[in-house]
Amino acid sequence: QRLRPAIVEVRATSSGGQKVSGSGVTFRTDGHILTNRHVVDGASNVVVIASDGRSLTAKIVGTDADTDVAVLKVESEMPVATLGTTSGLQVGQQAIAIGSPLGLSGGPSVTVGVVSALGRRIDNNDGPPLVDMIQTDAPISPGSSGGALVDSDGNVIGITTAIAVSEVGAEGLGFATPIDIARDVAEQLLNTGRVVHVWLGVRGEDLDLTMAKSLGITGGALVNEVTKDSPADVAGLRPQDVITTVNGKTVSGIADVIVNVRTRKVGDVVKVTVSRAGKPQTFSVTLKERTVN
């Protein structure tokens, strides 16, 4: 109930008259709203329906294809959502999706599920692949795209997206951009009008308890794949390494690695400590700008 006033309906119309309906999350009291890029992409007119029923004209501040994030601005004071963090987020935690599905009247709707995976890469039929995504079994219908994925305390942990996916078996799943990434994208769009993404170049998963116990550690991120010529590859990381700390901060799972890296800048050097064959090793990784490829 506390969050619902900060969830808005977004109605976008293209110059050709095509209409798209989605959702948005107000994150600044001066009327700045987070939503999905694909909801407003190519729109010549955007209208936001506030939780109190007001119809407000919105300006597109900026969009980012790599994360499917867009920032809108309405000229009105607005109630805001509490933005949380995905740092420490674990598979199995409760996840609540809030949005305005299909533009139905009666205010935002709520669906409940769990976080079913972290660090997902989703091939997007309408743009570049989306990486580092939260996967949930909470249903996200097209009109809820751009709404909030929330934890059990009511803090926003992701911006939901109901993209058309080409991955077999992904049709019934919901996905969300981690809020730490969405917030960073929004700040860059507001400050510079352009978004630069850094990358490490690994894909991985949370370390299971059995393996953690055998290595004598409490948790970490198991590296499944290291992209050739990526910063991680150049620094010397390998598949089957278990990342335990990044810049001295303990890593409990893959979400911690994602959050720590994605909020840094091009050229930053991060110290990544791994457990390799049961022995700790530390690597200096120089982060680079991530390209579409």
Rank of each mutant, 00 (worst) to 15 (best):
V246P: 04
K249G: 13
T136Q: 05
S252C: 08
G106R: 11
L287M: 10
R121D: 06
Q18L: 13
R54W: 05
T26I: 15
N125P: 12
T192L: 09
W199C: 09
A97P: 00
V156T: 12
K228H: 07
S44C: 10
V150K: 00
A212H: 01
R290N: 07
S252F: 03
T210N: 09
R183V: 07
D132N: 14
T161Q: 02
G84H: 08
D137C: 09
L209K: 12
V39A: 06
A43L: 12
V20L: 13
D233P: 03
P178I: 14
L3Q: 02
V112N: 06
S100K: 12
G119V: 13
G106D: 02
T161H: 03
R276E: 00
T282D: 06
V198P: 06
G92V: 05
G107A: 11
R276S: 10
K288S: 12
L72I: 07
N36Y: 08
G17P: 01
V195N: 08
V266Y: 08
A176E: 01
K279D: 03
P178S: 14
F27W: 09
G216R: 06
S14M: 11
R238V: 12
T29I: 14
T86C: 14
L215D: 11
V39S: 05
T177N: 02
T35I: 10
G216M: 14
G88M: 12
A221Q: 02
V226I: 04
I60R: 02
A186K: 02
V20C: 08
V285N: 14
N191H: 09
S144N: 14
S166C: 06
F175D: 05
G154K: 00
T227M: 15
T67M: 09
M211I: 12
S116C: 03
L287S: 02
G17E: 01
T250F: 09
R262D: 08
M211C: 03
E171S: 15
G92N: 06
E167P: 04
L215W: 10
M133N: 05
T13R: 12
D66H: 15
S44L: 07
S76A: 15
T218W: 04
S275P: 05
Q1D: 11
E225W: 09
G147I: 05
V259S: 10
I179Q: 07
N45M: 10
R238S: 14
P231M: 06
L3P: 00
L189G: 01
N125H: 07
A221G: 10
G267K: 00
A255K: 11
V257K: 01
Q135R: 07
S87T: 15
L207E: 03
V285R: 07
G31A: 02
P231N: 00
E75G: 15
D151W: 03
S23P: 02
V226R: 00
P139S: 05
D206I: 01
A81M: 07
S51A: 10
L209T: 11
V46D: 01
R37P: 03
G174S: 08
L189V: 02
I254A: 00
D30N: 13
K249F: 15
V198L: 09
N260W: 10
E167L: 11
G193R: 04
E205A: 13
I243D: 13
L215V: 11
T35Q: 03
R54H: 02
T218K: 12
D233L: 05
T111N: 04
D268T: 08
V165A: 15
R194S: 00
N224C: 06
D41L: 15
E205K: 15
K19V: 15
I179C: 12
K213V: 08
T111L: 08
V71H: 00
K73D: 10
S105A: 15
